[in-house]
């Protein structure tokens, strides 16, 4: 069968599996909302303060909630042997791995983007910054998934890869955080945001082209 069909079948299978394990699907979403609501509880509900720190809080919460389910991207497949089958396919492993990343982003990243306006309202984010927040999340969360997938692929063969994965990924996530939170900050102050948005878009294009190959190579190392 063709590569396009293989890609769609892999994407469809992973989404179907995620839907059958709904509990896991809700975890990052609840975590995102919980982390974001901790800050007003700890710092006090003054609107001026919250308005000032909301972009940073929302982005840190989004980043942490992306990290939480990251390990699930390849570990279940590693454990039940379907990852081996994927690498033994005559289709390029990089394209099949990309299908898995896309599926993972659709079930963990997109819900966070959809919940973000509510959390933004909660944290008194100025309305004029909402489009910027959604734009940075739309560009940034797939970037987090792509970078994260490389880390997961590298650590999937280790017994306790989770904590190591967080240490590995957090530094790599810093540029995304800086540009994304910065853009929302600028939008809240009424400044133009084209610069950081273009930069995030460029990073996403770069990750989309290069990350699949790095993921496939890392998976081969982990499985050998």
């Amino acid at each position: 069968m063709g590569l396009g069909r293989a890609f769609r079948a892999m994407l469809g299978r992973d989404i179907r599996l995620a839907v059958r394990q709904r509990g896991e699907l809700a975890q990052p979403l609840v975590f995102f909302a919980a982390v974001a609501t901790l800050f007003p509880l700890a710092l006090g509900p003054e609107p001026e303060l919250l308005e000032r720190i909301a972009p940073g809080i929302i982005w840190v919460a989004a980043l942490l909630s992306a990290l939480l389910p990251m390990d699930r991207m390849f570990r279940p497949d590693y454990e039940d042997g379907t990852l081996e089958q994927m690498l033994l396919s005559p289709h390029p492993a990089s394209v099949l791995a990309l299908a898995k990343v896309v599926a993972h982003w659709l079930v963990t990243g997109v819900p966070v983007i959809l919940l973000a306006p509510l959390v933004a309202l909660f944290l008194q984010l100025p309305m004029q910054a909402l489009p910027a927040l959604l734009a940075t999340l739309a560009l940034g969360t797939p970037l987090l998934s792509l970078i994260g997938a490389i880390g997961v692929a590298l650590t999937v063969g280790l017994r306790s890869g989770g904590p190591l994965l967080a240490l590995l990924l957090l530094p790599l996530y810093v540029p995304v955080l800086i540009f994304a939170a910065g853009a929302v900050d600028r939008a809240a102050a009424g400044l133009p945001i084209a610069g950081p948005i273009y930069l995030l878009a460029a990073m996403l294009v770069l990750a989309l082209t290069l990350a699949p190959m790095a993921i496939a190579a890392s998976l081969r190392i982990s499985l050998s």
Partner: peptide, 26 residues
């Protein structure tokens, strides 16, 4: 290749598993 771990998903039916492995082949 059929490893000693069967390489099938427990949350899927045999039919869905078969469709998934068929899609990986040419």
């Amino acid at each position: 290749y059929l490893g000693h771990i069967p390489g099938v998903k427990r949350d899927l039916t045999p039919r869905e598993n078969l469709a998934a492995s068929r899609a990986l082949t040419t």
